[in-house]
């Protein structure tokens, strides 16, 4: 069991850093605009990340499995560690980075090392989802902004009332955002461990928890730890960043980005769309930060803001290429050391 925990530690570290960074996307503005206390934001975020991961985490995780099924636990450990290191390195170098892109690069690196072919159709699906993610968030941001502002102006609600509704709204969309974050991004944290999961299904009070659920639960707890221990700092930075959002803007941004994350994570929604013969969305882990940037751009366009900083979009584009590449290279090198220096089996 101890060895298992050691091997899982890289995934848990990845979860911790995801919690530290991405909780800010969900609750950052609510906290920095003093609409919500950090303590409450962290509690709500943690509970719903765990629920999202355990209940809705399977879909996006399956897609990563199709990209490359890491079949030895030392390999999984190395892949998650390499992705974590990539995120850490790129953050230090102030380069745009996303855990989703890092883990995909790492899996491809493992495929290369183990001599397995990367499923190109799955990879294409993933990359096209990355591009779609900020665009879709921008569309949601634009529509929601126009809809809300028109209705607020028409209804002549008192400023204080709007404040109250926004505050309550931020709690709800924050909870929804945390759920979606857990459901969509748990695949990044624990996805590579699914094929080699050492746990057995357990039965608690009539509910059966599969080995995957247990794995996702542990990952989500690591995310929660990241939220409690480090996200406050990130939230302050996000709040003081280039985007000065009003609480109402923040509500729209969180709702838009959460919807995007939900769409790319929900098996229920996919089944529903397919049953009505509608085009469905692939279940792929996407970047919550990029969804947030997309939503902010959508609002800015709706507001008719001139001099939009399109450099941000360029940065996202760079991240799509650079992150998987760096992560892939780091994984390859680390797998080499793991296999030849530490004498561990990194693939079967």
């Amino acid at each position: 069991m101890d060895t298992i925990l050691i091997f899982l530690s890289s995934g848990l570290f990845l979860g911790w850093s995801l919690g530290a960074n991405d909780a800010a996307n969900v609750f950052g503005t609510a906290v920095t605009t003093k609409m919500l206390k950090f303590k409450w934001a962290a509690i709500i975020c943690s509970i719903f990340v765990i629920i999202g991961a355990v209940i809705g985490g399977a879909g996006a995780s399956n897609t990563l499995g199709k990209l490359g099924s890491v079949n030895a636990i030392a390999g999984s450990f190395t892949v998650a560690l390499a992705a974590g290191l990539t995120v850490f390195l790129m953050t230090r170098l102030k380069l745009p980075v996303s855990t989703s892109q890092a883990i995909v690069g790492a899996i491809i690196g493992w495929n290369f090392f183990s001599g397995l072919k990367t499923d190109i159709s799955t990879l294409t699906k993933i990359v096209y989802t990355w591009v779609l993610c900020p665009i879709l968030a921008a569309i949601f941001g634009f529509i929601l902004y126009k809809f809300l502002i028109t209705n607020i102006r028409r209804s002549k609600i008192h400023m204080i009332r709007i404040d109250q509704y926004t505050r309550i709204g931020l709690i709800f969309v924050g909870a929804f955002g945390s759920y979606s974050l857990g459901a969509n991004n748990i695949a990044n944290v624990m996805g590579v461990f699914v094929p080699v999961s050492p746990f057995k299904s357990i039965n608690i009070a009539g509910f059966t928890f599969s080995n995957m659920s247990i794995l996702f639960f542990l990952g989500a707890v690591a995310i929660s730890l990241g939220v409690f221990t480090y996200s406050r700092k990130v939230m302050t930075t996000v709040g003081a960043d280039i985007f000065r959002l009003s609480p109402l803007d923040a509500f729209i941004v969180v709702l838009s980005s959460s919807l995007v994350l939900f769409i790319f994570a929900s098996e229920g929604l996919k089944a529903f769309l397919i049953s009505y013969g509608l085009p469905s969305f692939p279940l792929v882990p996407v970047s919550s930060s990029q969804a947030v940037v997309g939503a902010i751009l959508g609002i800015a366009i709706a507001k008719g803001v001139k001099n939009l900083n399109f450099g941000v979009i360029g940065k996202i584009g760079v991240g799509w290429v650079l992150t998987p590449f760096i992560s892939g290279v780091i994984t390859f090198i680390m797998l080499f050391f793991m296999q030849n220096v530490f004498m561990q089996k990194v693939f079967l």
Binding site: T33, K34, M35, M159, I160, D163, S246, P247
Partner: peptide
């Protein structure tokens, strides 16, 4: 009561 944090200075 921490109300309208972003506009209370103006109010």
């Amino acid at each position: 009561h921490m109300l309208i944090p972003e506009s209370r200075g103006d109010v």
